[in-house]
């Protein structure tokens, strides 16, 4: 194994967070480490603290207790530009306000590298074209954004994140608005690219079967604490599904693939 795969990108230590004017502590002592090149799924029921966790590790919320270190630096001491050099983000859904062309849209991924006037250098354009080629967005490169299908939009957003050329890509339920085929296409593509570019993926996922297929590690949140953390093959089991999600399931294995089928409430 290469040495750099063990480099710790994100380390969270004893993280506590309460929203202002609220009594409920959303995160109660969360600790975890994510290493370079890992594909990590963040799991948990609604309200378990996943979204808050994402807002914290992207530096959108800064008044936390404990420590969040991005490549060894405390995140609330970093500028937006510093963070954008390391982390890119793929939102659940992007609502296009103005019908930018896909090319202009992907170019915005270069914001942290381009000058203030937005004149793309040769390097910027190369990164944009490469990202568009890898995601297939090159096929509708000059089309206006509002004429794309849901799958094409999601791929353009991923292309924008790739153009940012970061070591970490955070994806917030990337398959939420996609049909069956596109869900698979998008995940497959992200995983391939992550392996090829040695990019760390942190994905918020709902479906345990997606976790089985597309991630090597999982961090499971329950009521603001980490209920399980480790290799997917070791931690994701029927007991966890009933403890955390309150669902009884059966495990089906065939041709080396494994899937969970829920059948009743626990």
């Amino acid at each position: 194994m290469e040495l750099n795969t063990n480099e710790c990108i994100l380390s969270v230590d004893n993280l506590h967070f309460t929203y202002p004017r609220s009594k409920n502590e959303v995160l109660r002592g969360v600790s975890c480490e994510i290493k370079k090149g890992e594909r990590v799924a963040i799991l948990g029921s609604n309200g378990a603290g996943k979204s808050t966790f994402f807002n914290l590790i992207t530096g959108l919320i800064t008044d936390y207790k404990g420590s969040i270190k991005l490549k060894g630096k405390e995140i609330n001491s970093m500028s937006r530009n510093d963070i954008a050099q390391i982390i890119s983000f793929v939102p659940q859904k992007h609502e296009p306000m103005f019908p930018f062309s896909v090319k202009d849209f992907i170019l915005m991924g270069r914001y942290s590298k381009i000058d203030a006037l937005g004149n793309p250098s040769k390097e910027d354009m190369e990164a944009v074209v490469r990202a568009a080629e890898e995601t297939g967005a090159i096929r509708y490169f000059d089309r206006p954004y509002n004429e794309l299908s849901g799958g094409e939009i999601q791929l353009s957003i991923i292309a924008r994140a790739l153009a940012q050329e970061t070591e970490v890509i955070i994806l917030d339920e990337p398959n939420n608005h996609l049909d069956f085929k596109n869900q698979f296409t998008v995940f497959n593509l992200i995983c391939d690219i992550s392996k090829k570019r040695n990019v760390t993926l942190i994905m918020s996922l709902h479906n345990p079967n997606d976790v089985l297929l597309f991630s090597d590690k999982a961090i499971v949140f329950n009521n603001g604490v980490v209920a399980a953390n480790g290799d997917v093959s070791q931690i994701l089991n029927l007991k966890l599904l009933s403890d955390v999600f309150g669902v009884n399931a059966v495990c089906i294995e065939q041709n080396g693939y494994k899937a969970f089928l829920p059948h009743s409430l626990a």
């Binding site: 963070i83 939102p91 991924g109």
Partner: peptide, 18 residues
Amino acid sequence: WQLNVLSLGDKEATLLGM
């Protein structure tokens, strides 16, 4: 150019480094 990025919305513009 800054307006292009601002028009993506606060959260996305922030996470792009703005």
